[in-house]
Design a protein around this nucleic acid. Sequence first.
DNA 1: AAAATAAGTTTACAGCGTAAATTTACACTG
DNA 2: CAGTGTAAATTTACGCTGTAAACTTATTTT
Lengths: 229, 229
Amino acid sequence: MARPAASIRNPNLRESIKETAWRQIGVSGASSLSLRSIARDLGISAPAIYNYFTDRDALVTALVLDAYLSFGDSQHAAKEKFTGKGDVVKRFMETGIAYREWAIMNPHRYLLIFGTPVPGYVPPMEELQPAMMRSMGALAEVVAELHQRGMLNAAGIPLFDPEACFFPSGQCPVPDELLIYSVSMLIWGRVHGLVSLEVSGKLPPFGPHGDALYRYELEAMLREFVIRE
Amino acid sequence: MARPAASIRNPNLRESIKETAWRQIGVSGASSLSLRSIARDLGISAPAIYNYFTDRDALVTALVLDAYLSFGDSQHAAKEKFTGKGDVVKRFMETGIAYREWAIMNPHRYLLIFGTPVPGYVPPMEELQPAMMRSMGALAEVVAELHQRGMLNAAGIPLFDPEACFFPSGQCPVPDELLIYSVSMLIWGRVHGLVSLEVSGKLPPFGPHGDALYRYELEAMLREFVIRE
DNA sequence: AAAATAAGTTTACAGCGTAAATTTACACTG
DNA sequence: CAGTGTAAATTTACGCTGTAAACTTATTTT
């Protein structure tokens, strides 16, 4: 049976492959992802996967894209939890808390995005950039709002070189955006530092819920960068 | 020729294997490390390596230990660059700068220690802990000195649960040490956040030397945690 | 109805870690 | 000095991986 009848065939094999991949990643980590074992789980032959993904890296990229989507959804949902004009600080905290929570709930997804857990895989930046920008966008929007309201205190912060960064050509940020992105990246660095250490088991739990240090860090950033009343 | 004559034999094969491994890691990253290709480079058969390392993970652990040693050396050297009583702040900055510089000069080593770049490898914490503690020790000593001199401003910082962390049993830290370690971990988190993003190419360069944001972050930590007058 | 295409199959190849059996060089002992 | 034992390598082999090539069959198009 070289080509199964449509009635037998899995009507959405591409999605099934990704689902199986996620399940396996959830069990044994992204590093042990294997096309052959995905195929075994699905009862198909390994080369059949090549009808849906040009190679293993293309599958990984699809998984990364999905992870960015889920992560971005959670970031934007958190940001939109409080909609009041005076709730910028709440939006900042919610977005920050959601960052860690998504990572804790999805450690393999987090490491897939921000670590380098698949042997030899180099993420195709051009392809991933929109999804990455969107997921970082929630934080950037909060920072932008702080800036608009004159609540952003980051005068001395260094700005990155807009030419040397990976913005889509022709979309180089204007000065105000440059400040916002630079602050966002510093905040991202702090948040990612703690979260990546925690997710990869290198940080002991702080406080009864394990998140005390993280909350302290978020509040430290409020003290440092945000002017209130 | 099953066993080569001593005159022909590589007298220090264990070290040669590690050197070759480092060379290959330097070229194509830690994820593509392969016993067989190391053996090819050395003109030996792959199973010969098993005389010196019980398996691939044991080799990786040996490499991680070497990396920790080199990293720790650089941290302690930086800390001891200024020895004056009033130079605590200089020691802090030097140690911080050296952290990033070592990582930039040894990106694969850095990712080997702090990332998860080898498929399926899980670091044996008990074995690595002394080397890890020593390398983190330089920063902890600086923080301890700040504390001794009454220059440490981190009263509200949360402390981690000494039982739940990976200290060697019977070496649980006393309250003062707990504060010092907790502050050190927060600092480590910030430093690691920026450095890991930079080393894995996810952060655009800030300023003419690419380190402006990092220096800003170090100075921000001085403002936040260090009392000067 | 015939031809083209789509979606699978089987087979095959090169690379990987590593277990097992085998070979040889050298050190130790009677 | 001969014989034995062990250390350090070899070859062979197994099962795993990604993936290229050739083949088969269901469905679609002409």
